[in-house]
């Protein structure tokens, strides 16, 4: 069932009419590359996120949290797994090549995974702020995504991210109801993670953004970012925490929160693997890949 299009314009017309592209289709080269890059970055981010999550299994406070962290780790690694499958089906890179590029620092992953989670408070801030940010952007992609396999896999991923967000919300509640020490630990985590989480959405979308034109994304970065801000400012303040933004103010007429200027320099640094924890994270990921090599070898032996 291979379809093809005479020109990029024809293809775009197909997309404008809600057309869904399947891997067997003869899609334009530029579109194939753009979808691939987007999914590869998503897959890398799930893997890097899953690995940080894993680090907290032995350190999570109490059995209940520990079990939640184990489940979350399995989900995130699972998301990476499914995404690498559909990325590989685009026949641009094999799974092996994607892994090698990630470990060589040649391919991207979300900015938030270029920072170190130092305390349990950080880990909760990630589950609360970052998983929510990821969820907001994944929902927007899912809504209108023109690439069939990605859209279908996102449905599953989004459902599971919902559990992570609930876990984050519950953990925040527990900390908020906790001791002064716990509360001040979490305030510090908010101070550290607020801006990276907010920058996960990226700078304002350019008017000619091809990801938007080809329905790989369906909403502009600034709109998603704002949606997240409107939700999380009151939530955190409701628990009695403060937002580390001196420019933050309430616009009463518009009934909205407005934030101060965003410093994009840290985001740029993470994009070139120059974030505070980029190098360590990448080498940890690479080590874990090597350490689990015996599993892949065993599977290869069975298949031979």
């Amino acid at each position: 069932m291979k379809r093809s299009w005479a020109s990029l314009e024809e293809f775009e017309k197909f997309l404008d009419h809600g057309g869904i592209v399947e891997p067997v289709d003869d899609m334009p080269r530029e579109y194939r590359q753009a979808v691939f890059d987007f999914i590869e970055m998503h897959a890398n981010s799930e893997l890097m996120g899953g690995l940080t999550e894993r680090d907290w299994i032995p350190k999570a406070p109490g059995l209940r949290h520990k079990m939640s962290v184990i489940a979350k780790t399995q989900d995130e690694i699972g998301h990476a797994h499914l995404l690498y499958m559909i990325a590989a089906d685009l026949k641009i890179k094999t799974r092996e090549e994607m892994m090698q590029d990630l470990f060589a620092g040649k391919s991207k992953f979300h900015n938030v995974f270029h920072y170190r989670a130092k305390t349990w408070g950080d880990q909760v801030a990630i589950a609360f702020l970052v998983d929510a940010a990821a969820l907001v952007s994944q929902q927007a992609v899912f809504k209108n995504c023109s690439y069939g396999p990605y859209k279908r896999i996102l449905r599953r991923i989004i459902a599971e991210e919902g559990f992570h967000l609930r876990f984050g919300e519950e953990s925040v509640l527990r900390i908020a109801e906790g001791t002064e020490v716990q509360r001040s630990m979490f305030q510090e985590s908010i101070n550290d993670w607020w801006w990276p989480a907010l920058q996960l959405f990226g700078p304002d979308s350019k008017p000619n953004d091809l990801l938007l034109r080809w329905y790989i994304k369906s909403e502009r970065n600034e709109i998603l970012r704002d949606r997240w801000i409107q939700k999380f400012v009151p939530l955190l303040q409701g628990y009695g925490f403060t937002i580390p933004d001196s420019g933050l103010r309430r616009n009463k007429e518009k009934d909205r929160w407005e934030i101060g200027p965003i410093d994009w320099e840290p985001l740029k640094q993470t994009m070139v693997m120059g974030g505070p924890d980029s190098a360590r994270r990448i080498s940890e990921a690479s080590d874990s890949w090597k350490k689990t090599g015996w599993v892949r070898e065993a599977l290869e032996k069975v298949s031979a």
């Binding site: 699972g78 797994h81 499914l82 396999p149 459902a159």
Partner: peptide, 22 residues
Amino acid sequence: GSIEAPTDELALVLARENYARR
């Protein structure tokens, strides 16, 4: 979705772990 596996038996196990956890 899809899954990579060396044998039918392992494909069932891996599919369960990846697609049917909940």
